[in-house]
Design a protein around this nucleic acid. Structure first.
Lengths: 205, 205
DNA sequence: TAGATTGTTAATCGATTAACAATC
DNA sequence: TAGATTGTTAATCGATTAACAATC
């Protein structure tokens, strides 16, 4: 790993490589090539080699990459060689789905707290968790030193909740509300909006 | 709208503009500028003007863009000036959340059928729909001429379901399974994977 | 009119690809 | 060794930005 700034677009591809490699490993495959990995993820072999080589020389000429080794390295680079605690705000349908989602296991994340400002939902049990009042959110998140949150509240509430999350020290927000959030530069936001994703495809129909 | 090929990256930004403009319209705002819209979505004013100008001259010097007019034009360009029927495959937690999602309204989409291959779920009522057996999926989708599907089945089943969807004539798939799908060139796939999105942010923490 | 803002051009910047020496 | 595949360089391609004439 060198000191130069790595472009965001490369960082964005690494989780895709990671997911494909994980899958190969699950299938018992031990090594792969930039060619093969590229076919799996729909990216050129040259680009995959270039991306990976930003961080070190992880392959071997003639044989390619050890999947186990490359997985280790990618997890280390992406800092998912640990488990991050995640707060979930919004106990609606989407919040429930995420709370029950099995896909975070072994990928670096676990939900540790769920919040909602609806008094009908506060106290409700979702999986192993009890929904807490948003009133207590800032202090709870600060106390638990949580840096990542998922936001599944309605659009009208999203910005004010995001402000509170930032105030509580959260640095990464996965936003399910259909609105662009305004946050400081040192806070990252990723947006998941099914309608927007669908609208990216209708142009081609 | 001209005949030249518009880069995919520009098409990808249009739904974001659309969402922000929709929100402004909801707030009673009548006009905006590339500057103002840019601040809302975090994109430079120059880029917004360039993107929009690919499709025509929709603004006025000195005053900017009429929000209502630009909304019309963007909807027309993205082909969401109509309602698309969407099939949902997978009646798990995520499928339920999407079936109940209110965010598709007024954004060009409506779910019209839900499928699952689990016999315990077939026949179940979700909102206004009854879950149908995946067995009947290909013929149903063909008969209803559905071109868009959302996929919320487990990873191990995703590729085979995707193959069936393609066979049924589906041309756009919103894939929630944590696996890269292999589809023909004329089929578009958008991927939503919460863990992958989170992993794009941990690098910066 | 004066001020504001577009649409567009040219310049800059950054990303992707092709090619191949190095080497396992 | 012979074949395969990396890491890297240089060339190409594409996207973004800055600047400004046109004009509302």
């Amino acid at each position: 790993m060198n000191a130069e700034k790595i472009p965001d677009i490369i960082i964005g591809r690494l989780p895709v490589y990671l997911r494909a490699l994980q899958r190969m490993a699950d299938n018992g495959i031990k090594t792969t090539s930039s060619q093969e990995l590229g076919e799996h993820v729909g990216i050129s072999a040259a680009q995959i080699r270039k991306d990976i080589s930003q961080f070190g020389e992880f392959g071997k000429q003639g044989t390619g990459y050890s999947i186990a080794y490359l997985l280790d390295k990618l997890r280390e680079i992406l800092k998912v060689d640990r488990i991050w605690d995640v707060a979930l705000v919004g106990a609606g349908d989407m919040g429930h789905a995420l709370a029950n989602y099995q896909g975070f296991q072994n990928r670096g994340f676990r939900i540790v707290a769920i919040f909602d400002n609806n008094q009908d939902k506060v106290g409700e049990k979702i999986g192993d968790f009890i929904v807490h009042d948003t009133e207590k959110m800032v202090e709870s998140i600060k106390a638990a030193n949580i840096k990542i949150a998922m936001l599944t509240v309605p659009a009208f509430a999203a910005q004010s909740v995001a402000d509170k999350l930032v105030q509580a020290g959260v640095r990464a927000i996965l936003n399910y509300a259909p609105i662009s959030l305004n946050v400081p530069n040192n806070v990252k936001v990723q947006h998941i909006d099914p309608a927007t994703h669908l609208q990216r495809m209708t142009y081609y129909l």
